[in-house]
Every structure is written in structure tokens, then in C-alpha cells.
């Protein structure tokens, strides 16, 4: 037990300062923001992540958002287990045809108001898989999308900026 405390103390706090992004910065990252989350909701958002056919690379970087460097929860952004608890669906991958109905049902199960973030090249703009007998292609081919974050996979920083951009109330 002492070892654990010692390691915790010597490690210290590694969490990094991250500022809410300016529009120009979002543009530079290729992040396309179609809507903002209304100020009323933006203090805390609950995200349900849906892998709709990804290669799992995007998931690795989404996971990293919870590591001590990024610690995304400090901004009131947290991941939930059910779409019924969610404000935002964070969707990755091209939508495989075998996941099409599952994604639609997850979308329907998410209460209004809701927003959809398509993260990663596959979800946002095409990527390596495209449309085929097995894949519906980008997420917006299946459900409406409010924010796209490109990258293969997007870095945790890009994901973070995108999500912060979505909740930084402008209106």
C-alpha cells in the first residue's frame, strides 16, 4: 500500500492545460462544426461512443481522452454506458452494413436534444473503406451529423478541441 501512495505522490499531477479552441484553430484541424450545443446544455455533456465499423484505431485515441494527461472529465465531458443517458453520440468508423440498424436504433434511443459527432476519417470524410456491399461509408450517410473530426485516427488533442468547440457556447 505504501508503495502505491509513494508512486502516486512522486508521479504528481500530469494533467495538461487545454484552452477552448478558437474557430480558426478548429478550421486548421479540419474540424467542421455545423452546430453548437446550446448554452443551457453545455456545462456537462454525456457521450455515448458508438463504434459503427471502425478498425479500432479511433477507439484507442478516444480511450486516451480519459488518461491523466487529457482527463476530459474535468470539462464536464463524460462517457456513459447507455444512449438513453447521452446528449452526444460519438461515432467512429465507416458504418458497416451489419451495424446500420444498430446505429439507427442507438440514435433513436438517444433523447432529444442530441448531437452527433463523427470522429475519424472513416466516419467524417471517407477513409480507406468507402461505400461497398459491406459498408455504408461516412456516418452522415446514415444519421445526421453535427460535428466532424478528421484524422486517422484523430489525436486525443484534436478530439478534445472538437468536443470543446461543440460545447463552447457562442450563440
Amino acid at each position: 500500500m505504501l508503495r502505491i501512495f509513494k508512486k502516486i505522490l512522486t508521479t504528481g499531477v500530469v494533467t495538461e492545460k487545454i484552452k477552448a479552441p478558437k474557430d480558426a484553430e478548429l478550421e486548421q484541424l479540419g474540424i467542421e462544426l455545423k452546430t453548437h450545443i446550446d448554452k443551457k446544455f453545455s456545462g456537462s455533456i454525456a457521450i455515448r461512443q458508438v463504434d459503427a465499423g471502425s478498425c479500432n484505431g479511433c477507439e484507442l485515441e478516444i480511450h486516451a481522452l480519459n488518461n491523466p494527461f487529457y482527463d476530459i472529465e474535468r470539462f464536464g465531458i463524460h462517457f456513459v454506458a447507455s444512449p438513453r443517458h447521452a446528449d452526444v453520440l460519438l461515432v467512429t468508423g465507416p458504418v458497416s452494413r451489419h451495424m446500420q440498424t444498430a446505429l439507427l436504433r442507438t440514435y433513436e434511443a438517444t433523447p432529444n436534444p442530441k448531437w452527433v459527432v463523427a470522429a475519424g476519417d472513416c466516419a467524417a470524410c471517407g477513409g480507406e473503406f468507402g461505400v461497398s456491399y459491406a459498408s455504408c461509408g461516412v456516418v452522415s450517410n446514415v444519421i445526421p451529423v453535427d460535428l466532424t473530426i478528421p484524422g486517422c485516427p484523430p489525436t486525443p488533442l484534436a478530439l478534445m478541441k472538437g468536443l470543446l468547440g461543440l460545447i463552447s457556447a457562442k450563440t
Binding site: 463504434d51 451495424m99 444498430a102 461497398s132 456491399y133 459491406a134 459498408s135
Partner: peptide, 11 residues
């Protein structure tokens, strides 16, 4: 399994 079948062999 098979939910994330993306047709990799075919494409």
C-alpha cells in the same frame, strides 16, 4: 461476431 465486416478482402 461479424458486425464490423467491412469487406476488406473484397476491396
Amino acid at each position: 461476431l461479424g458486425y464490423v465486416h467491412k469487406g476488406i478482402e473484397k476491396i
